[in-house]
Design a protein around this nucleic acid. Sequence first.
DNA 1: CGATTCCCCTGATAGC
DNA 2: TGCTATCAGGGGAATC
Length: 275
Amino acid sequence: MPELPEVETIRFDLDRYLSGYTITDLWNDTPKMMRPSYEEVRDLIIGLQIKGFRRRGKNLIVEFTKGKISLLIHLKMTGRMLIREKKDPEDRWTHVVFSLKKGEEEKELRFANQRKFGYVRAVNTQELEEIISKLGPEPLDDLTYEVFEKTLLSKKIAIKKILLDQSLFAGIGNIYANDALFLAKIHPETIAKDISKKKMRVLFKSVEEVLKKGLAYRGASDDSYLDAFGIKGKYQEHFLIYRKDKTFCPRCNTKIKRIKVGGRGTFYCPSCQKK
DNA sequence: CGATTCCCCTGATAGC
DNA sequence: TGCTATCAGGGGAATC
């Protein structure tokens, strides 16, 4: 599922390949994916030239050279953003298509979305700012250890829930939360404020490490994730603990356990990650 | 503040 | 073999 490394991988390629293109048409067959509505989004963006793509947490942001409208795109679990030629074969589950043109060059940006949870939302500068400001700091950018520690010390809930809370830290999802906790040898249900300062430091570094590793491998394609060219990432080949509940701990060979924390599948080594 | 549940959706998988 | 019930999951809303 697209988390920070996956969305960032997509963003980087979209920015590089589609900046400068102008939106000439917008197609959609699933109105609920378009906010406020297909017609409004269409009228707002047709004719606009793409300035670039930004990312905030798991949100992809399309910026234009003129006006105060941006597109806020969330891929949720099964979203894909694909750069295609018009003549390219259909991509299954495509529900939104942006037609693009730069000089004589034509392209399509296709939003495929199997479970239809993702969306494209047109927002003005002020709305964008409001939404973005509700997200926590970026773990690979402006999150400092001091803020990390302060956040953990203020919470009496399971550390894994904290890591997944987008208003506390933006962009960490289930895969990287599981792997970071394994790396730091912390039980996912440990009450955040009870973690020792020493382990907090290790966890801070672990979060950074797994996210960077995810980026280096261009994301994890254990389910439906594909990059902007339709190519799988490779981080799934390097999962430490995520979805490893049929195997044994790489450190101590104990059988990996699977539980639910906050309703999400959670994996840990009962020997290495004690409460 | 936090916990819990529901909802959205559809392919994969388990169970019969 | 083939059908049906269950599950997964990001995030927002509603409820306690």
